[in-house]
Every structure is written in structure tokens, then in C-alpha cells.
């Protein structure tokens, strides 16, 4: 591993611990900027403004104290792109060990529970947890995306199969818009609004959800290269913010901060629209390791 990316295992492990610390306690700049933008729009003295003020205060306290922004440190999701020749099993061992240490340091809550026995795994090392997705790529460096996905917002994620009779949603862009708006209404404030939607169009059920989750890696101010999807993203943000749901569902004009959509091909019989809801506590960070240099973003 050392020869390939220039870090020994111990240093790589401490870099992963630092990645978890930053992700859990420091909200990304693009997310903070977006919350501030909406904070300025809510009328002073309303419950919505007061909720956004508390959110901003919380962001600062978490950063200053290196403490979790939200106590639900969620599903710990690593997406890893690595150069050829790096042993995946070794990487996985390092990550699991880093997650255990990060839990002992209180950057993560002991959050993994056996579904049948209800027993907690106190180091966050369980079956399928942390979630680690490894992909070999042709670059000469390691790139890691980490998302901490809380349960409140995960629970309001949903998947539609088009056409949808109740919503009169056909297999086209308008149909996609309709079901996505429905997802926002169904979520109300329960996903810890204001939120961000990741939308995956097409694929099978598993691919669709995966694609929608991958959209959480995009910066909130980027622009979709596909003009149809760019329009979908803008339309949804605009319309969702007229629904009056507001922060926490208290009412107000800040329901969604952003929408990010992507598509993949489908088979003729299936047309899935998969919606991932991310809460305002949008914990997402990147780490790259190249020639022994570690960079965080």
C-alpha cells in the first residue's frame, strides 16, 4: 500500500479517523452557504427563521468543539476509488479499525444494531456496516467520499414505479417531477428539512437507489450537464419551496436546499424514480491520498 499511495497503514488509518471527525463535526462550505442564503430570506420572528438560526448556531458549536453535528451519526458510507494493485481487503480492515477508533473518540455514536436480537455493536463494526463500496480506477491516487446518512432522512427516502395512476404521473419528465414533489410532501419536516434530494432515474431498484445516493457527492452549487435534468432540479427546488412545509415542518419557504438528479438506462418493463432525502445536517467529505499527501475537502 505504501508504494502505491505513499502512506503506511498506521498513517492511512489516522487519516481515515480524521476524515470521520471532519465529516461528523464540520458541515461542508457549500451546504453552510446554502443554509445562510435561505436564512436571509425567512422573515425575522417566524418559527422558520428561529429554526434556521438554531441550525446555524448548532453548526458553529459542533465545529468549534469537534463534536457530532447530529447525534444520529447515521449509516457510515464510504465510496472509495483506488489505483490498480491496492489490496481491497487490507483497505477494508483499515477502515473498520478507523471507524472503531472514531467511535471510541465520540465522533460517531455506537449506532449498529442487530435487527433480530436488538443487540448493539459498540464499535460500529457490524454486518454490512460501515458500508464500504470499493472501485478500482485508472488514476494513481486514492479518493474517498464519506457520507454520514442519518436515519430520519433515510426513512423518508422512497422509490416510485412509473406510471403512477394516483398522481397521474407518466413515463416522462413531467411524471418524474410529479412523483418527486409527492415525495417532498410525504416527507414533510420528518427528514429534518430543509433537505436535499438525490434522484436516480432508471436502473433496477438497487441501481436506482445507489444512483440517487451517489448524487449526494455533488456540490450543491454545481450545474447538471444534462439540460433536462438541470431543469428538473431547478423546477423541484422552486416548487418545493412554495409548499409551505419549511424547516422542521414548522411552515415557511425553506423546504429544499437543492436537488441533484442523474439517470441510467432502464429495461422496457421498468421505470423507477428513486429518491434519497438528505437532511440539512448534510455530512459529506472527501479525502485524496497521493504520493503520501493527504488532502481533505
Amino acid at each position: 500500500m505504501e508504494n502505491l499511495i505513499g502512506l503506511d497503514e498506521e498513517k492511512l488509518k489516522s487519516s481515515f479517523i480524521e476524515l470521520v471527525r471532519r465529516t461528523s463535526s464540520v458541515l461542508p462550505d457549500d451546504v453552510v452557504a446554502k443554509i445562510k442564503e435561505y436564512q436571509a430570506k425567512e422573515k425575522v420572528g417566524t418559527r422558520a427563521a428561529s429554526a434556521l438560526d438554531t441550525i446555524m448556531e448548532n453548526i458553529k458549536l459542533a465545529e468549534d468543539g469537534s463534536r457530532p453535528i447530529c447525534q444520529d451519526t447515521g449509516t457510515v458510507i464510504f465510496d472509495i476509488y483506488h489505483p490498480l494493485g491496492l489490496r481491497q481487503s487490507a483497505l477494508e480492515t483499515i477502515i473498520r479499525s478507523a471507524v472503531a477508533d472514531a467511535t471510541a473518540n465520540h465522533y460517531l455514536r455506537p449506532n449498529v444494531v442487530d435487527p433480530l436480537t436488538g443487540m448493539s455493536k459498540f464499535d460500529n463494526n457490524g454486518v454490512g456496516h460501515p458500508a464500504i463500496y470499493l472501485k478500482q480506477w485508472d488514476e494513481d491516487y486514492l479518493k474517498v467520499a464519506l457520507v454520514l446518512k442519518g436515519g430520519g432522512c433515510e426513512n423518508v427516502g422512497t422509490q416510485y414505479s412509473l406510471p403512477n395512476t394516483g398522481l397521474k404521473a407518466g413515463r416522462d419528465l413531467d411524471g418524474i417531477k410529479k412523483v418527486c414533489l409527492d415525495a417532498v410532501v410525504k416527507a414533510q419536516g420528518r427528514g429534518c428539512a430543509p433537505g436535499v434530494l438525490g434522484i436516480g432515474i432508471g436502473g433496477d431498484r438497487a441501481q436506482g437507489y445507489t444512483l440517487s445516493k451517489k448524487q449526494l457527492h455533488r456540490k450543491l452549487d454545481d450545474k447538471n450537464e444534462n439540460p433536462d435534468l438541470a431543469e428538473l432540479e431547478e423546477w423541484l427546488v422552486e416548487k418545493a419551496n412554495t409548499l409551505g412545509i419549511g424547516p422542521m415542518g414548522f411552515g415557511g419557504g425553506t423546504t429544499l436546499l437543492a436537488v441533484k438528479a442523474a439517470l441510467m438506462d432502464r429495461i422496457p418493463a421498468s421505470y423507477y424514480v428513486s429518491v434519497t432525502y438528505m437532511c440539512w445536517a448534510y455530512r459529506r467529505r472527501f479525502m485524496t491520498v497521493k504520493n503520501g499527501n493527504v488532502e481533505f475537502d
Binding site: 429554526a51 438554531t54 441550525i55 448556531e57 448548532n58 458549536l61 459542533a62 468543539g65 463534536r67 457530532p68 453535528i69 447530529c70 447525534q71 442519518g150 430520519g152 419536516g189 429534518c192 424547516p247 422542521m248 437532511c279 440539512w280 445536517a281
Partner: peptide, 10 residues
């Protein structure tokens, strides 16, 4: 306020 774990912990 959901997610405001630090304000509330204080």
C-alpha cells in the same frame, strides 16, 4: 430542532 444536537446538549 432535529439535528441540533450541540445546541440541545448545551
Amino acid at each position: 430542532i432535529g439535528g441540533a444536537s450541540q445546541v440541545l446538549a448545551q
